[in-house]
Nucleic acid binder design. Structure first.
Lengths: 342, 342
DNA sequence: CTGAAAGCGCTAACAG
DNA sequence: CTGTTAGCGCTTTCAG
């Protein structure tokens, strides 16, 4: 259990400020909150008293009655080291959401959960009224938390659609991006297009794979899938598997990787083996991270507007907080960026 | 102002759980908090009732009486894009602190402040009892906030010593690291050692420059200072200034950069100009970021144990939370890592 | 415009 | 072991 509070200095309360100013609790409260209906003289007195005593209102007491906290949580149900890895996706989402909330005068708290235990703690936190709204910056497959929070009446917005749920969400158009990528490959003459798919526990992983399956079927370019986890290393390994597999009539002449990091890992592996990209195997990634422009050759990839995701999440939340009942989902466009690998 | 709460479903309270279970509020409370002194049968009833109603205790009400929240804030009084930039320093500190708190069963909230306004909001947040303790992952020069929080009786730990304050802190031994670097340069024959210093608004920037000044005086290697802001670009520019300046009898034969990122920027600039490192100019950085091992030639640098900083910050805080009155400051060792640039 | 009084939902003595 | 009774510090009617 937690410790004592022995050394905690007594914090002044509103009563003391009121006494110091020679007014009632109610008046002190009104003055401090800037209500117009307070005599200027008294207000000044109260302000002076508060200043002198170093008074800061007790958040618990206040929110117990107002039922507001003026804070919003940005939750990432991911272990912290996944959030802050090579992958700049989360940092960028966080950054842009933070900017938006900051501009709106809201305080944003960032929470991550590594363990099951941490996840449970976050659940309590979100449900017990600590915050006015919750933004899920990522979704764990089958995680009941977003729905739970939503049903308890707290405004919720998710990054990505949670299946079977009516929670408002923001997402990018994975499918049309993948479609565009495959068609481009096809037009460049590729006929055996494999994919390095992302983890199927994540919306992005699932959507991109589904789109690959659909489009490669439509194109008649075959289906060959190896799974990675969005990291560079997994891309490196995955392409190895693809090259070794004897399951196809031939090795692929093109690979669509569901993330730039995986594409980059694959690129390195291919180059180490002396396989030419794009001549022997064409390669397309997804994300358009900063590094995509700096690989040699430059990585052809599907651009998703990461910063806009964070901003849109925040804007949606702000609308809900304003009392908006029905808000539309946001689907942001993706776009193929052609560079050297395809 | 914030919006209405019109659509907010009424959340069940303890009274309702108690009623449903046919016991008093007190018993329900005890049962739910796992006190031993409750009849097993009643406890089961209460738990079932709570489950059925989807009861989650109201945090405000609880903390109003317990004066605890079981959460800790990790505050970075920096704009969010500084926190999540190329520089892996903050992410690593956050990550390791998060792991430590997670293991201890505490919920860690991350707060950043971009604007003055945000900073004020954070101040309120920290002072109004939202959290049991505050860790400052970085310090703004002359920022009164840490001291304010500390004096208000809330446990505080800082990353870096705040001058003139008695707040417990964790830091790395900047000075001995710099000393070691300069001596190494000296031993390798360098006699005109310049520095690219970090921002003097940050402890790390100040400490490293002070150590440089001290040691280069002791060594008689002269003093030539250009300021950067820890980023790669600033390193790139700084070395340019250093090369152009006519203020010395000669250009430097060695440069100590106060961060790896700046060293890297300088390295690139030198190489672009066809200046050989380390033959024409030797170079030493500070941090030992991951990339330091991958530059060509490898970057000689002063290693600081970033992960340990976060862990130590968290451990200090946990001790304070346990009621420890006096805790010792922590100074973590640094160490010169020799690679190719010096 | 100001004060008195009634809670917000919960925990913590204190009796039983 | 359980229920009763006070508050925690604040906002918000409701009178004046």
């Amino acid at each position: 259990m937690a410790g004592r509070n022995a050394n905690r200095r007594e914090r002044p309360t509103l009563v003391q400020v009121a006494a110091e100013a020679g007014v009632s609790r109610a008046t002190a409260s009104r003055a401090l909150r800037g209500e117009r209906t307070v005599d200027a003289g008294l207000r000044a007195k109260v302000e002076r008293a508060a200043e002198k005593l170093g008074y800061v209102p007790n958040a618990a007491a206040r929110s117990l009655v107002t039922r507001r906290t003026d804070t919003v949580a940005l939750i990432l149900p991911e272990p912290t080291d996944r959030v802050f890895s090579d992958d700049q996706f989360f940092p960028n989402v966080i950054r842009s959401a933070a900017a938006e909330f900051e501009a709106a005068g809201k305080l944003m708290l960032l929470l991550t959960a590594g363990s099951e235990d941490g996840h449970r703690r976050i659940e309590r936190y979100a449900l017990s009224g600590h915050v006015d709204g919750v933004v899920f910056a990522s979704l764990r497959d089958g995680d009941p938390l977003p729905e739970l929070v939503h049903r308890s009446g707290i405004p919720v917005v998710c990054n990505g659609a949670q299946k079977g749920s009516s929670i408002p969400y923001v997402d990018v158009d994975h499918r049309s991006g993948v479609r565009e990528a495959l068609r481009h490959m096809y037009e460049r003459g590729c006929r055996r297009i494999a994919t390095i798919a992302g983890p199927q526990t994540m919306v992005a992983g699932r959507e991109r794979l589904a789109a690959y399956a659909e489009e490669s079927k439509a194109l008649g370019t075959g289906t060959q899938i190896v799974f990675g986890d969005f990291t560079k290393e997994s891309g490196h390994n995955a392409i190895g598997v693809l090259l070794d597999e004897g399951t196809w009539e031939d090795t692929p002449d093109a690979v669509f990787a569901a993330s730039d990091l995986m594409a980059y890992g694959a690129l390195q592996h291919l180059q180490q083996k002396g396989i030419s990209v794009p001549d022997d195997i064409a390669l397309v990634g997804f994300d358009d991270m900063e590094m995509a422009a700096f690989t040699e050759p430059g990585l052809t990839t599907v651009r998703q507007p990461i910063d806009e995701i964070g901003a849109a999440l925040a804007k949606q939340m702000l609308m809900l907080l304003e009392g908006e009942e029905e808000i539309a989902n946001v689907v942001l466009p993706t776009q193929l960026i052609r560079r050297g690998t395809c």
